[in-house]
Design a protein around this nucleic acid. Structure first.
Length: 430
RNA sequence: GUGGCCUUAGCUCAAUCGGCAGAGCAUUGGAAUGUGGAUCCAAAGGUUGCGGGUUCGAGGCCCGCAGGCCACCCCA
């Protein structure tokens, strides 16, 4: 056992895993650009208040899971910082700080990076996890909700995932949700004697969460509980109808899930979540989001609507693995430069440098070991070619060996770069 | 934060009732001094997660801690 280990809930992305991550990051960047979402990157930490106000002070994410940062000597810093548990609050902070209200609305932004929550780790749940995140700030209409959902779905499909299930709900707004929550709480209080202890606690903190309970007694109670769908105010109901209509128009199927309650305070109206078709286990949500029409105001701006989603990259990779989507292979050099004289590492280095200058992906075998070992290393590295340096170099030539075909020929050192570029190109196309 | 199961070499796992810590794969070297993923031989690799206890003797039993997994909680 190594003396030092990655902190609990974090992990090292080894080359094969980092390659899979990079592939998804690249797909995300392409997709954002194709949809007209501009890249942005905000700090990994913010003043704690950004999250306390934005995400909500009584949420678990802020109350229990915030990674608070201790910096400097403590006494000289009046500000308190925290690692970001989610990307939206920081992006909205940037929106206000840089006056994006004066940009054409909505402002469409996309980012990709790590988030931090001090949670108890589990499969699919980490203290540092990655999200691909997209936000559209400044458009109140239901069409942009559909656009965002379409973008999210497209990302899953482009990554190779089978069509995921879309769970959709509306949780109302400041006009209708408080009354609904009060009715809901009153309903449960009438049955308080039957509530398990944990549910009584939830009743005080967040009555909406009772709808999502896994307690057997609750299934019966929930069936008779008032439903948000029939309590939406006129504008919210109209908005939700607009979202489903737009989704229908662009051919995206969804499941209305009245119990879909999200854990961050800033959500209003539309909330949604994606789950893999073959989902099992509790950490099954591979992404979710919703509308946050009150968030900009919470952070000190004029009332401004917004909507966004975050996709959990770690969980998406788990889902892809379960579905048998092949992981991308490690990158490998086109050529490895080996030599007949084990100790002559300098010649190998020079030839490899020439090849790189010519644009060829090449590495030299720099170990002092005999030729057969060098060739073995080249083959195991997945290189297509080995460049063998020997006595032929006196005549300005090397052996160019095709490791896949098992053939080789003599090539002039001066032509080597061109030859390899041409061969690598035809190999890719063939 | 709560409960359950687990932790032996880089990886996957053995080790009878408490009695000399092992194998396969991977790594390195040799067989083979200028020709590769095969084969054979060998080497190297360990505070058995950490700390304490019981015992003549602990990888195996007891206690604590850490980490992983599972469920809860929460969420991506």
């Amino acid at each position: 056992m190594a003396r030092f280990q990655a902190p609990r809930g974090t992990r090292d992305l080894l080359p094969i895993e980092k390659t899979a991550f990079s592939r998804l990051e690249s797909i995300a960047a392409d997709l954002a650009e194709r949809y007209g979402y501009q890249p942005i990157e905000t700090p990994l930490f913010e003043q704690s208040e950004v999250f306390e106000r934005g995400v909500g002070g009584v949420t678990d994410v802020v109350e229990k899971e915030l990674f608070r940062v201790q910096a400097g000597r403590g006494d000289e810093e009046r500000e308190r910082w925290a690692l970001r548990p989610e990307p939206t609050a920081g992006i909205v902070r940037a929106y206000l700080q840089h006056g994006m209200q004066t940009w054409p609305q909505p402002v469409r932004l996309a980012t990709f990076g790590p988030m931090f929550r001090y949670d108890r780790p589990q499969a699919g749940r980490f203290r540092q996890f990655w999200q691909f995140d997209v936000e559209a700030i400044g458009d109140p209409g239901p069409a942009v909700d559909a656009e965002i959902i379409d973008l999210a779905r497209r990302f899953y499909l482009d990554s190779g995932l089978a069509e995921p299930r879309l769970l959709l709900n509306s949780i109302g707004d400041a006009a209708c949700r408080p009354a609904y929550v009060a009715d809901l709480a009153a309903y449960y209080r009438r049955h308080e004697a039957r509530l398990p202890a944990i549910e009584r606690n939830r009743l005080e903190r967040n009555p909406l969460r009772l709808l999502d309970s896994k307690e057997p007694v609750m299934l019966e109670l929930n069936a008779a509980a008032p439903s948000i769908g029939e309590r939406l105010c006129g504008p919210c109901a109209e908005h939700f109808a607009g979202v489903t209509a737009h989704l229908d128009t662009i051919g995206i199927a969804s499941t209305i899930e009245p119990r879909l309650v999200r854990g961050l305070d800033y959500y209003t109206r539309t909330t949604f979540e994606f789950v893999p078709q073959d989902a099992h286990g509790q950490q099954s949500a591979i992404g979710g989001g919703g509308r946050y029409d009150g968030l900009v105001e919470l952070l000190g701006g004029r009332p401004t609507p917004g909507i966004g989603f975050g996709i959990g990259i770690d969980r998406l990779i788990l889902a892809l693995t379960e579905q048998g989507v092949v992981a991308p292979s490690l990158p490998h050099p086109t050529a490895v430069v080996v030599g007949a004289d084990p100790s002559d590492t300098a010649t190998r280095l020079v030839i490899a440098t020439e090849l790189r200058a010519a644009g060829v992906s090449a590495r030299a075998d720099l170990a002092v070991r005999k030729l057969s070992r060098q060739l073995e290393g080249a083959a195991r590295d997945g290189a297509h070619f080995a460049v063998i340096c020997g006595d032929e170099l006196d005549a300005g030539q090397v052996q160019l060996r095709d490791l896949e075909a098992g053939t080789q020929r003599v090539v002039a050192r001066a032509d080597l770069g061109r030859e390899l570029l041409r061969a690598a190109k035809s190999h890719r196309h063939g």
